[in-house]
């Protein structure tokens, strides 16, 4: 059965809406009962590292670093490095707590089945303890190295990702990654606050770019992983609203990302070079999302391209912003 046919079949189930959906998720979770998993093998340091979601962590480090570079304040380089490390560890901690909570659905999805908990290398309780310990450690270290504002923002980011997104939104609404995206968008604000002790409007411009970028990025992935999400009963947009509606929403968000990507130039945070790069990248993003919109249901070539480009987009956009600010400091 193809992914689209399968999701159509799932969509016809009345239990996928409202309370019925929540109950079916709860029943599924009970039958899997990840908290009674028997460990298959002893975990090594690499398994604990995998628990930190290193790829997500690298994006957090990168965007937080750009926030620190663009921020006008000055901090001892060693303290700045320790602050960045704290933000990275905080992101890893929330990743570990997310894996603890989502162990039941990770076991169902092909993309996540080899993670340390579903594959039986780490016990869920161990992951919960590890994540909680690192959360406290990272916030405390950031408070020591920089200031209370940054530490408070990091604590809020971890709380938002684990409690608001993972525990509440992810299994209950197709807007899960839209609202939950705030957690992924906060690192540059935390980085900015670490340097200055405040979070002004400019920092929230960086937040808004990532916040608007998150839905088209994840929905492009969800389009061709729809079957996986349906199997795990996660109400991602393509599963609940269908492919056509998702493709329309991806296009709408891509336009917003394209427009907002140039905002740092108008806010005086970047120069003409950045504006040019942001404009070109924005056109590329809108063009690929338009291709995704025009593609037939079941054709995921453009969605895969868009997903790949979205990562490149964020990397180049923030990279240019950071490089321009560094260059400005030396000229």
């Amino acid at each position: 059965m193809s992914d689209s046919v399968m999701s159509d079949a799932v969509m016809q189930e009345p239990s996928l809406n409202g309370e019925g959906f929540k109950k079916s998720v709860a029943n599924e979770a009970l039958s899997l009962d990840p908290h009674n998993l028997e460990l298959q093998q002893l975990a090594g340091p690499a398994d604990y590292y995998a628990l930190l979601k290193p790829r997500v962590m690298s994006l957090v480090i990168f965007t937080a670093l750009i926030g620190m570079i663009v921020a006008p304040g000055a901090l001892n380089p060693v303290l700045a490095a320790v602050s960045l490390l704290s933000i990275a560890v905080g992101a890893g901690a929330s990743g570990a707590l997310n894996m603890w909570w989502d162990a039941d659905i990770d076991k169902v999805m092909a993309r996540t089945i080899n993670r340390p908990i579903p594959s039986g290398r780490i016990h869920p309780k161990e992951a919960a303890a590890f994540g909680s310990f690192l959360s406290v450690l990272s916030v405390t270290l950031l408070m020591l190295a920089s200031n209370y504002v940054a530490a408070g923002l990091l604590a809020f980011t971890i709380f938002f990702y684990v409690v608001i997104y993972s525990m509440w939104l992810k299994r209950s609404t197709p807007q899960n990654i839209v609202i939950g995206g705030a957690a992924g968008a906060l690192p540059p604000v935390v980085g900015w606050a670490a340097m200055t002790g405040s979070a002004p409007l400019e920092a929230w411009v960086l937040f808004t770019i990532i916040f608007l970028w998150t839905p088209p990025h994840f929905w492009a992935l969800a389009l061709y992983r729809e079957g996986d999400y349906a199997k795990a009963k996660i109400p991602m947009m393509p599963v609940v609203a269908g492919e056509r509606s998702t493709r329309r929403q991806i296009f709408a968000y891509a336009i917003l990302v394209g427009l907002f990507g140039v905002a740092p130039f108008f806010m005086g945070m970047a120069g003409l070079f950045y504006a040019l790069i942001a404009g070109i990248l924005g056109i590329g993003f809108v063009y690929l999302s338009f291709q995704t919109l025009m593609a037939q249901n079941g054709d995921y070539k453009s969605a895969k391209k868009l997903f790949g480009f979205s990562i490149l987009y964020l990397f180049l956009l923030f990279g240019t912003l950071g490089a321009e600010n560094i260059a400005k400091a030396f000229l």
């Binding site: 001892n76 060693v78 303290l79 320790v82 490390l85 270290l141 020591l144 190295a145």
Partner: peptide
């Protein structure tokens, strides 16, 4: 070591 260095610098 980190806490030591951070304390000295702060």
């Amino acid at each position: 070591g980190l806490v030591y260095v951070v304390t000295l610098l702060r």
